[in-house]
Design a protein around this nucleic acid. Structure first.
Lengths: 198, 198, 198, 198
DNA sequence: AATGAATGAGTTTTCATTCAT
DNA sequence: AATGAATGAAAACTCATTCAT
């Protein structure tokens, strides 16, 4: 046993365990991940996981929760009420893509693993839903003369979808945050001009 | 034993089994689906599944394959070389969304289940990649004077992402194909005008 | 593997498994018995136990049920309505003690193990209760002039308790059925004469 | 942290722990009781239990021992050599039933839990054996002209069994000590008259 | 062609028990 | 004297997979 057998205060161990869990879950998904492998990654024994988190599902939930909080915190700047809607969206895009860029595992576990998990899909979906509605509001409020029949709702769905796809690329290291943010922003405002360009 | 040991020609049995498998996989995902439940759904015995498909993974692969072929066939009209790029894209969008609308399970199994599956993610990803490149070409070829610096590649990624998000809504029955297609089309052409609207 | 690996029809295997389970449960009690040890005793694999009985608790329940039925069947002769109450009691005693004598494990599992098991104690207790009431009726109906204040109910409780204690001795091989039955019978009728002998 | 690290003299701690243990064991049985739950009930930490008692089994043994001593002490009056055998039995019955009435947990742990426990069944059984022999002596010595063939030994077994059954009722609060004692006493003397009433 | 019977190999989960402070 | 932190060992349960008929 290398330097593993230290007694750590509860709070530290908790983070250590979550770090390991997020990492392994992000790589392999909920089902392909065994508690054994998480314990190994965290360099502790399996019973500790159960002692601290009760069950595999609760451990996964704890991961989702911690990463979710991190995510929301990262997005906070976009909520600044002094910003214009346009700047809010711009800030949000940057915050989002930067977060994904810096926290690959968070992104994967939050959006690509949790959603495949019966018990958590609902949670993910509903937080996505909230995001969609937020974007919808932003679009509405910054569009002076919308074309009649503009469907902001589905527009938001599409934009979030685009954002997630682009985020995947960023997580994959294929794309730069700057370029991606610019694209999404332009997509948002241009798309708004109404469904049928001449 | 009514309906017990029917001898069916191979081809029929194969389809019967795939139908069952696609259905159950779409509902529950790869891991949450047991061979038992597929056998039950198909009203045959488990060894039959193994006789025809060898293993759970191969069975899943067969599902992906059949649904993939169906999908490609559904998209065929968009390849008509007599169409203008614009009309090709338009046709593709309609074909795609109609397919999803009529084949919920196919969509779910192809894009929402397979992608979460280590062994198949690659397959899905690469076919998505092909689609992205296709769209990229379409965009390029129908843009006369692109803004300098227009990144068609990431634009395609975003569009496909938007399309998938919208497809999910259609699969959920929340959105009409018409409206969705219009939106995506407009997003494509408008987005092209370049990243930075004044 | 000696002669173990035969394919047996379901019904046969079921009995074989119950035989093993009753045996091990009787020896070691519910908690001290592992499914592994039952599987070993039955010379089959653990999954078979689960395939046939679902869970350890259900397997135990099946044991209780089978042995309970056997027990009731063994007691049937005592129910003959042509017998006088006295003869009914006498027959019941003989049936009971003979059953215990010939089926040690049944007795142990039914009365000494099941009763310690949260989930089954109720069942055992209530069947014992029925027995007590039955005896109560028998005593009442065959006592012409009971002493005033004779409490047939508690008398029955005592007699059944005595019977169970004696049954344990018989199960242990320490006592002969004949002598035990005689004793219990005399206890029943003599005890009836009222609480306070001069 | 109010009430945190109280230093208590050894003897007090010991009793506090045994109280908790007896209580929980009586309620849930040996196996269904975890050391954690005992520690919680005693409001101390688990290592204390191990420090004082070494192991779960030893703790259980200590419970049995303490309650056994209490029980024996409660029965002491019956040993008064100035009493006639009849009065000894009578006193014993009252002492016994009163003890059970006042010490439900002792009774449960001593006779209903310990007996189901491989490691302690022997202990319980042998102390029961002593009791049986005692009763046997009492019966013998107070029967002037026994019927030939009277089997005092099995008679004692039966009486003790009856006594335990009645004790259970008393522990359950269903029956009054007085009535129960009377019944058992009469059963003892009447039963003696020999096995076959004309 | 088809299936009932059977299992190897793992997974999650739970405790009694022990260190290090 | 007392405890928070940690684990080895085992138990219940599941499932993809294969045999014998």
């Amino acid at each position: 046993m290398a330097g593993g057998t230290k007694r750590l205060p509860r709070a530290v161990r908790e983070q250590q365990m979550l770090d390991a869990a997020v990492n392994v879950f992000a790589r392999n998904g909920f089902h392909e991940t065994s508690m054994d492998s998480i314990a190994a990654e965290a360099q502790i024994s399996k019973p500790m996981l159960y002692l601290y988190y009760g069950s595999k599902e609760e451990l996964f939930a704890a991961c989702i929760h911690r990463e979710g909080v991190r995510f929301v915190e990262a997005m906070a700047p976009a909520g600044d009420p002094n910003l214009s809607p346009r700047d809010q969206l711009r800030t949000a895009l940057f915050s989002f893509l930067n977060f994904v860029d810096k926290n690959r595992d968070s992104w994967l576990v939050l959006y690509r693993q949790a959603i495949g998990q019966q018990a958590f899909a609902g949670q993910v979906r509903s937080s996505r839903e909230r995001l969609i509605q937020l974007v919808e509001k932003l679009l509405e409020s910054s569009t002076k003369n919308p074309d009649p029949g503009t469907d902001f709702s589905i527009m938001s769905v599409a934009l979030i979808g685009a954002g997630e796809a682009v985020a995947d690329r960023i997580a994959g290291g294929d794309v730069a945050v700057e370029a991606a943010a610019d694209l999404l922003e332009s997509l948002a405002w241009r798309g708004l001009r109404g469904p049928r360009p001449s």
